[in-house]
Structures are given as C-alpha cells and as structure tokens.
C-alpha cells in the first residue's frame, strides 16, 4: 500500500505554513494573551469535567481562525518530533485541539506508520 506524500515533506512548505500562522492566526494577533492558548497547568487525566471545559475553550478560542489547518499540521510535525526525540508530551491549545486530543492523534498516526512499515517489510 502506498500512502500519499506527507504534506509537510518539504521544509519550504512548512515555513509557508508558519508564515500563514503568524499572519492570520488568532493567537498571533497583537495584544492577545498567550496564557489563553498556553495556560500554566492543564487538567489532569481524571478531571473529566475540567477536561471537557478545556476542550470547549480550545474550540472557542480557535473558532474561525484562518490558519487552523496550518496550525494543526505544524503542531503535529513539531510534537511528533518532540515526542519521539525528547519524550515531551504536547501541551497548550493548538489548532483548536486540547493537548490530549493531539496526543491521541499522534499515537494513532504513529501506529499507522508502524503498521505501514510492517506491511512493507
């Protein structure tokens, strides 16, 4: 099975995504509080209600952002590298997603990649 080429395979493209985020992102407008996107602490795993609130806040913060897709892609790339190289879990709101949601996505995609490799082998 052949997978489509990853959209972030070339660096220039990734850079243009970053440019889009800095130009159009709601979180990069002047005067916004970075604490809204990267709060000091995130709710723990068993605080389900607080997690739900957090997710609602995340979707609300990023609603209508033009750079949402770019943000999700860059977040995935960065956080995958962080996770694999430094064992750093995602944190903060990116692409309208809570960190645990992104973490699950990463795990899922990682599993997909690994199964691909197994199939190819």
């Amino acid at each position: 099975m052949t997978r489509a080429k990853s959209p972030t395979s070339d660096l220039a493209r990734l850079r243009s995504l970053y440019d889009q985020i800095t130009e159009e992102g709601l979180c990069t407008r002047p005067g916004v509080d970075p604490d809204h996107w990267f709060p000091d602490a995130e709710p723990a795993g068993n605080a389900t209600t607080q997690r739900r609130f957090y997710e609602q806040a995340a979707t609300a913060r990023c609603a209508g952002c033009k750079a949402l897709a770019a943000c999700q892609v860059t977040a995935e790339v960065e956080e995958r590298a962080d996770l694999m190289l430094h064992d750093c879990a995602p944190h903060g709101i990116r692409g309208g997603l809570a960190p645990w949601a992104r973490f699950e996505r990463l795990l899922a995609s990682n599993i997909a990649v690994e199964t691909d490799k197994e199939e190819a082998a």
Binding site: R15, S16, Y18, T22, E23, G25, P34, G92, R94
Partner: peptide, 24 residues
C-alpha cells in the same frame, strides 16, 4: 512576502504562539 520567504531571501520575523510561550 511569501515568495521571498519561499525563495529564502526573507524570513518571517513574527513568532508563533508556541515560540512566545517558550520565551515566556
């Protein structure tokens, strides 16, 4: 601007929220 950035002549000076957060 994007053309220049893509060609590599320019670099976007602004930071994303993640970078701001790191700095803070």
């Amino acid at each position: 601007e994007r053309m220049l950035v893509r060609v590599g002549l320019a670099e976007s000076s602004d930071r994303t929220a993640t970078e701001v957060d790191t700095h803070r």
